[in-house]
Simulated scan of single mutants.
Amino acid sequence: MIWMLCFFGGIGAMARYVLDVSIQRSWNRSFPLSTLVINGVASLCAGVAMMSYYAQSVDSDTVMLFLVGFLGGFSTFSTAINELLSLIRKKRFVMALGYGVATVAVPLVCIALGLGLASFAR
């Protein structure tokens, strides 16, 4: 099982890289949008996966591989914090405050949406 977690984590990290580069190519502003989008998508997917597990439509091993493996490699809270500190160092305090709030609020909203979408689909 541990090797499968590592494999899925690697796939998640590659997916994050591809999405990050794609967003950065089209978003050339100082606000770090790509990490916020990635963590939002990961949270939405986590909500759907958790509700699917609660509804017993997927088994625990599948959820573990997806949540811990793929989404663990895909999401990146440490990069979000690094980007927040970078905004503070550049003295972009208002943007840093907005990004800090969004870094917490967006994933919470997205996980709630994922839980709601999956429970609605049952």
Rank of each mutant, 00 (worst) to 15 (best):
S26N: 06
L36I: 01
S26R: 04
Y17V: 11
G47H: 04
V18A: 13
N39Y: 05
G9M: 05
C6M: 12
V58I: 15
T35G: 06
C45P: 01
S26G: 11
L19G: 13
G47Y: 01
R25I: 07
Y54M: 15
M51D: 11
L33N: 01
F31V: 12
V58D: 11
F8W: 09
Y17F: 15
S26E: 14
V48K: 02
W27M: 02
A55G: 07
C45Y: 10
L44H: 00
F8A: 07
P32W: 03
Q24H: 09
G47C: 05
V18F: 13
A46C: 00
D20C: 04
R16H: 13
R29E: 15
D20K: 09
V58E: 06
G40D: 00
A55W: 00
G47P: 01
M50P: 06
C45E: 07
F7E: 04
S22I: 06
Y53A: 15
G40Y: 04
G47D: 02
A15L: 10
M14K: 06
L19Y: 04
T35N: 09
R16T: 13
N28Q: 10
S30T: 13
R16A: 14
S43E: 01
I11M: 04
I23N: 08
F8E: 03
A49M: 06
N39A: 02
G10W: 02
V41N: 03
V21F: 08
Y54R: 11
L44E: 01
V48Q: 07
W27L: 00
C45I: 10
Y17Q: 12
L44A: 04
V48T: 11
I23E: 10
M14C: 15
I11L: 05
I38Y: 06
A46M: 12
A49D: 04
F8M: 00
D20I: 07
G9K: 07
Y53W: 11
Y54H: 15
R25H: 07
T35E: 05
S43A: 09
L44D: 05
V58S: 14
A49T: 09
N28F: 09
A42P: 01
V48A: 06
M51Q: 13
V21T: 03
I11G: 13
S30A: 14
G12P: 09
Y54D: 15
V18L: 14
S57K: 08
A15R: 00
W27F: 10
L33Y: 09
M51Y: 14
A13I: 09
I38H: 01
S30I: 10
V41E: 03
F7H: 03
I23F: 02
G9Y: 06
S43M: 05
N28C: 09
Q24Y: 14
S57C: 11
G47T: 01
F8P: 03
S57T: 13
I23H: 14
D20V: 05
P32Y: 05
C45A: 11
R16L: 02
Y17W: 15
C45L: 12
A55M: 05
Q24S: 10
I38E: 03
S34D: 07
S52H: 08
S34V: 05
Y54F: 15
M14T: 15
A15C: 15
I38N: 01
V18H: 08
Q56L: 12
G12E: 13
G10K: 00
S34M: 04
G10T: 04
L36P: 01
R25P: 03
Y17G: 10
R29H: 12
V58F: 12
G9D: 04
F8R: 02
Q56A: 15
M50N: 08
Y54P: 10
A15H: 07
S52Q: 08
C45K: 00
A15E: 08
